[in-house]
Design a protein around this nucleic acid. Structure first.
Lengths: 217, 217
DNA sequence: AACAGTTTGTTTAATTCTTGACAAAGATGT
DNA sequence: ACATCTTTGTCAAGAATTAAACAAACTGTT
């Protein structure tokens, strides 16, 4: 690799940097120092400088960082300056909500199709795409070559589907099922959402707080 | 505190342990060793033993861990053996989908109310609760004392709402807005979901893979 | 009941991540 | 043009996390 591999911890912070820089830009900020950004984001200035430095020297001493330039650089690193074609598998409650709620174009994706087995939802419109039957999936993939997929199907269905999808050319999975998907294969990338785990973590937070309050009384 | 504080890294793994143990139990496993669990979960056995040991000695040498007991212990640590009353703020696409998709009772919560400002959705049924107008919120909180809230309202509304909700007795926030909420105040716990950041991370994964493939060719 | 085989809990070592420190570079004001 | 102030990039120290190693405890079998 041309650069030292970027650590996972840094990568997980990048989308948040990008988001904050977008807000700063929208609020008319032209420049920002690591110290000022650190205060807004609740990080140390040192960490911010070190994070940015993984990818090159974006700042200027005595001045700070140009907000628009820096945002552009991070956007580029995140692959947000292209649109990867994406499909939705499972157009139930959750799938539909995700598809209509997310601003795909600003996250580097273009939602071009949606599929389901349930005849009740086939034909339904989500934004400007309409839900197709699962038997049209192969033909659609051959034609339109989607590279990413959102998994909003039942867990068991997801497990069975993954291999097929990979054979159709899907390389990136945004997985909302309970199936704990691991990238495993080379050239495949996975982002597990696990909303249930997130809510469970909230339960822990609430619970541990209460305990420590009782103890501290 | 009675125990050394549990590190964040451990806490973030607990829900996943709980989930895997549930699957093992459902598949008839009575006992499991750290080695076997490590293979299933893609962790090291050492890490698993160390994680479990933060909370006490749950295993038995030469035998391993009793699946049901261990799951129960972790469930207790996570606060899953009680039901915290919870409300939904914002019953649009996403809010409705979350509310109907999540198995609240198995995550330690009980969804008892839903609120929105939009007259189009007021009165709509989500499972067995019906959406109420936001002006009924205060009265409802006084009466029913919810402790947790799901934020599925627009970002700007969320920022304004938080203080009010805290004054109504809400202590835990499951936040789906773009507002980057920090617990800040004592006795308040927050879980930010940030679906957008998750999708952005997927974009990075896809992008960085492609680059390294090109370089390695 | 004795022995071989497992597996935990725990200690120690290695690695990774975060923070603090500071020289060098440039900005700003006089 | 000069001096002062700011702020980066980077290095090194410190903290936290993960992995390896191993004695002690228990299982299961003969």
């Amino acid at each position: 690799m041309s650069k030292n591999a970027i650590s996972n911890s840094v990568i997980r912070r990048l989308p948040r940097y990008y988001r904050f820089l977008g807000e700063l830009e929208a609020n008319g900020y032209v420049r920002i120092s690591s110290r000022e950004l650190s205060e807004k984001m609740g990080l140390t200035a040192s960490q911010i400088r070190q994070d940015f430095n993984c990818f090159g020297e974006f700042g200027q001493q005595g001045y700070g960082y140009n907000v628009t330039d820096l945002r552009g650089e991070i956007g580029h690193i995140l692959g947000l300056d292209k649109l990867t074609p994406m499909i939705l598998l499972g157009a139930g409650n959750l799938g539909t909500a995700i598809a209509s709620h997310i601003d795909f174009h600003n996250k580097g994706f273009d939602l071009i199709g949606a599929f389901d087995t349930n005849t009740d939802v086939i034909g339904k419109k989500i934004g400007d795409i309409s839900v197709q039957g699962i038997d049209e999936l192969e033909h659609f993939c051959t034609d339109s070559k989607p590279v990413a997929a959102i998994l909003c199907v039942p867990t068991a269905a997801a497990e069975k589907m993954v291999d097929v999808l990979i054979s159709y050319g899907i390389k990136a999975f945004w997985n909302f099922t309970h199936y704990d998907m691991r990238a495993g294969r080379k050239g495949i990338t996975v982002e597990n959402v696990h909303l249930g785990d997130s809510l469970t973590t909230l339960s822990y937070g609430l619970n541990s707080m209460e305990e420590s309050e009782t103890e501290n009384k």
